[in-house]
């Protein structure tokens, strides 16, 4: 496996790209997913239909098609080109938002209308009620689902190689094909993915435990 040491720097570069895309995708997806969930629940019929269409597009088509769409189709319509890495960031954020919207909406449903009514009864506006009462509870509940989403998002980022982004998988493919050493290379690549996912999900578990509301849990 010593030959891999020569490529340590390249592997690290690939790993950093993967880290950037997964973190950005998961957090931007959380922020956008929260807005989508709120729009869907409180935004009225038209907004809800538009959000439904958005969600269907990103959940209903392969991630590779989505990458092609944003990397080839849209720029060709606009007669321009986009940076592959930027496309990667955007597509994974948009894609993850579509999934996270569902989780957040579900968490808000668990909290139910009673909490909203109690907040309104005090004279809070709907927006303040969402901000001070609904979201603090929903976002706590959604941490385990976010953690799951992070795992699956991380694995999908391997698709970035189809638009030429030099992520971990793409770097691994290059090294292994130069040396015809597929076994060792992808073993190492897989272990790096596993380590990354493990670290982040452990942190998420820890955060979940720390911010947990006494007595309120999602039953497994």
């Amino acid at each position: 496996m010593e030959f891999l040491l020569r490529y340590l720097w390249d592997i690290l570069q690939g790993f950093i790209v993967t880290v950037e895309v997964t973190l950005f995708g998961a957090f931007a997806g959380l922020a956008l997913g929260t807005l989508l969930a709120l729009g869907d629940l409180y935004g009225g019929r038209v907004v809800s239909i538009l959000i439904g269409a958005y969600t269907e597009f990103f959940r209903g088509s392969p991630i590779i098609v989505q990458l092609f769409f944003f990397y080839f189709s849209i720029p060709s319509l606009l007669e321009t080109t986009f940076d592959a890495f930027a496309v990667g960031l955007v597509v994974f954020a948009l894609n993850s938002a579509a999934y996270q919207k569902g989780y957040i909406k579900g968490a808000i449903a668990v909290i139910s209308e009673d909490q909203m009514m109690a907040a309104l009864s005090l004279g809070l506006s709907k927006i303040k009620a969402i901000f001070y009462v609904i979201l603090p509870q929903a976002l706590r509940l959604v941490i385990p689902a976010w953690s799951n989403e992070f795992c699956s998002l991380t694995k999908s980022t391997a698709a970035l190689l189809v638009i030429g982004v030099k992520d971990l998988t793409s770097v691994g493919l290059r090294i292994s094909s130069w040396h015809f050493r597929y076994v060792e290379t992808f073993l190492v690549v897989a272990i790096i993915y596993l380590a990354w996912v493990t670290v982040v999900t452990k942190i998420a578990d820890e955060v979940y435990e720390r911010v947990k509301i006494p007595g309120i849990e999602i039953s497994a």
């Binding site: 009673d114 909490q115 009514m117 109690a118 009864s121 009462v133 509870q137 706590r140 509301i213």
Partner: peptide, 11 residues
């Protein structure tokens, strides 16, 4: 307003 089922904010 005081509710039958109380509805305190859990968090």
């Amino acid at each position: 307003f005081v509710f039958q089922h109380i509805y305190l904010f859990h968090h």
